[in-house]
């Protein structure tokens, strides 16, 4: 308890507890809310706060990457999908069987206990690739990425390439035809219908 209070009154400790508290609350809202807008907003702001943890730890580069990738790109894509819903109404959720909820909830609780218990062994945790003083964050990440983790890095790049090509193929049918011109000729709909019939 004394340790907790002592750490609470340092700058880093206070920031950590504040960010953790807010992150948990926000993600709780994400899970529990029936409203698309609340869930989306709280998930996005939770992601922003998570980048705060990286800044506290001195990992500026990772913090900024968290901001750009999750907040700027991934969440924005989610929200694009959310536009198909009426955002101002509450969504009726289909509640699945109680057993599934029980098992999943129990497993999550177990995970949480394990995560909270992990720092007990914190002395046995060692940083294999600690930050170098005077060397920038980005350089450190780059060196590890292009030496030890080169193969996973390249595999991830290849997977992204595959996903991109698949996306283009899925979305790219009839891309060379202009929808506006089809409307003008009033033949577009018929054409699509006939193609469907052929299939």
């Amino acid at each position: 308890m004394e340790n907790f209070l002592a750490s609470l009154f340092t700058f880093q400790g206070f920031a950590f507890y504040l960010f953790s508290f807010l992150t948990i609350i926000l993600f709780w809202i994400t899970v529990m809310s029936n409203n698309v807008l609340y869930a989306m907003t709280s998930l996005a702001s939770g992601m922003v706060l998570i980048s705060g943890f990286f800044f506290i730890l001195g990992a500026d580069f990772l913090g900024v990457v968290q901001l750009i990738v999750y907040v700027g790109a991934v969440m924005a894509l989610y929200s694009f999908a959310m536009m198909f819903f009426d955002a101002t109404r509450e969504i009726k959720e289909k509640n699945t069987s109680g057993a599934v909820v029980f098992v999943l909830g129990g497993l999550s609780a177990l995970m949480l206990v394990l995560m909270f218990a992990a720092p007990i062994h914190s002395e046995s945790i060692q940083a294999l690739y600690p930050m170098h003083e005077g060397v920038g964050n980005a350089q450190d990440v780059g060196i590890v990425l292009f030496t030890k983790y080169l193969v996973p890095f390249e595999v991830a790049a290849l997977m992204l390439l595959v996903a991109m090509i698949a996306g283009i193929i899925l979305a790219g049918k009839k891309m060379d035809q202009s929808l506006t011109e089809m409307m003008d000729e009033d033949a577009g709909e018929d054409e699509i219908l006939t193609q469907k019939d052929e299939k």
């Binding site: 996005a44 922003v48 800044f55 500026d60 580069f61 900024v64 990457v65 901001l67 750009i68 907040v71 700027g72 790109a73 924005a76 920038g136 964050n137 980005a138």
Partner: peptide, 16 residues
Amino acid sequence: VNVGILFVLGMMAAGL
């Protein structure tokens, strides 16, 4: 911050 440019771009991205 020593990643100033990225931070500014990231924050402007969050502005959307």
